[in-house]
Amino acid sequence: MKAVFILRGYEANCEPRVTEQGKFAAQVVFTKVGFHPEASYRTLGDFDTEDAAITHAKKFAEDWLARKA
């Protein structure tokens, strides 16, 4: 599943990380296109699948950008 999205002029990297328990931790790093990373959220919850983690991080990114960008 695609893990990097361009939303409202930001790159939202929603690549999950694998936890010690074998789950996938949702996280997102925001980078204004053409700039350095601006905000990171590394503890958005643990999920059983990589796709579920990406979906959750993308939804978080959409909501965050709707409020901040």
Rank of each mutant, 00 (worst) to 15 (best):
D46R: 13
I54Q: 03
F5Y: 15
A61P: 03
P37S: 05
D51N: 07
S40G: 15
A26K: 08
K23S: 12
A69F: 07
D46Q: 15
E62F: 00
I6Q: 13
A25K: 14
Y41M: 09
H56R: 10
Q27F: 04
T19P: 02
F5N: 10
V33K: 13
A12D: 06
H36P: 00
H56M: 01
K59S: 13
M1I: 10
A69T: 11
Q21V: 03
R8M: 12
D63V: 07
G9S: 10
N13D: 15
A69G: 13
V4K: 12
F5V: 10
R8I: 02
F60E: 07
F60T: 10
K2A: 10
R17A: 13
T43L: 07
F24G: 00
K32T: 02
E50P: 01
G45E: 05
D51H: 02
K32W: 00
V18P: 00
F60N: 07
T19V: 06
A66E: 12
R42W: 05
C14E: 06
A61H: 02
V33A: 04
A3N: 11
P37L: 06
F24D: 01
A25D: 01
M1E: 12
C14D: 05
A52Y: 01
D51F: 01
A12H: 05
H56A: 15
P37A: 06
S40C: 11
A69Y: 05
K68S: 09
T31F: 06
D63M: 08
R42H: 09
T43W: 02
A66D: 11
H56Y: 06
A52T: 01
K32L: 08
H56W: 01
K32R: 14
A57G: 07
R17P: 00
